[in-house]
């Protein structure tokens, strides 16, 4: 398993796709920088309001899109050069290959989240936010966003493994990501929509509560873990039986 992950990491490192982890934190950095929250009512909570502002673009659009791109990409170089054939005749378990690929994408998303925190800290330093950084809020937002990407990751990996096309899983991902802007407002559908979950878990609940943000954290966790288990097992079962 360690060898598999090492090999997967090696293949990815030599491509340039991992550079995408910088895109969203950078954009969020500029959004956070330009946003003016020097209004009196935000006094003392600038960290959280900035985090909220930055989360909108990052979690509604970029996290779901990046998850799809990374999932497609770790399968792309296998589809393109007949890599599956070679990989699956190696003395390794098929299930482990699938898990290694999934861990790799999870790692990339995790790195994106960490860079996002770095962006927030730099903004706070430039703007001189109050010294006591609310680590609990930031921590749960970042971890929550990462966790909420997991069902989506499992789903996208399943689709990417099944289809040899690189574009098709991405197109599907984009099509389902765009309605996010509406769906996060829906109390009924929001929590169950895999593409909306990153935002719902990442948004710090201090400021305005709207739409699906009212859903309790417990419900969200159950939906997210349940969704992940279902998509993961379906993908794993499919991959183990797939004929190359």
């Amino acid at each position: 398993m360690a060898a598999l992950f090492k090999s997967e990491f090696y293949k990815l490192r030599k491509s340039s796709i991992w550079l995408l982890i910088f895109v969203s934190p950078l954009l969020s950095f500029f959004i956070g920088l330009l946003e003016s929250n020097e209004v009196p009512q935000y006094e003392g909570v600038q960290w959280v309001t900035s985090l909220g502002m930055m989360t909108i673009g990052h979690a509604i659009l970029f996290l779901p899109l990046l998850t799809g791109v990374f999932a497609s990409f770790v399968c792309r170089y296998e589809h393109a050069g007949g890599g599956w054939k070679q990989l699956l005749t190696m003395p390794v378990h098929r299930g482990n290959i699938y898990i290694a690929k999934m861990l790799l994408v999870a790692l990339l998303i995790g790195l994106t989240q960490l860079l996002f925190v770095v962006a927030l800290l730099v903004i706070g330093w430039i703007k001189g936010f109050p010294g006591d950084i609310p680590w609990d809020v930031i921590g749960s937002s970042i971890a929550g966003g990462w966790l909420a990407c997991m069902p989506l990751l499992a789903l996208q990996l399943f689709v990417s493994v099944a289809w040899s096309s690189f574009a098709a899983p991405l197109a599907i991902n984009v099509i389902f990501t765009i309605p996010n802007i509406l769906i996060i407002n829906s109390e009924r559908f929001g929590p169950y929509y895999p593409w909306a979950q990153p935002f719902l878990l990442m948004m710090p609940d201090s400021s305005e509560s709207f739409g699906a943000l009212n859903t309790s954290a417990t419900t969200l966790f159950i939906v997210i873990i349940g969704g992940f288990v279902v998509f993961f097992l379906a993908g794993l079962f499919y991959f183990k039986r797939k004929e190359i």
Partner: peptide
């Protein structure tokens, strides 16, 4: 060791 039909390779490597 095997080679099935077309050679497998990672083009970016």
């Amino acid at each position: 060791g095997s080679l099935v039909e077309y050679p497998s390779y990672y083009g970016h490597l």
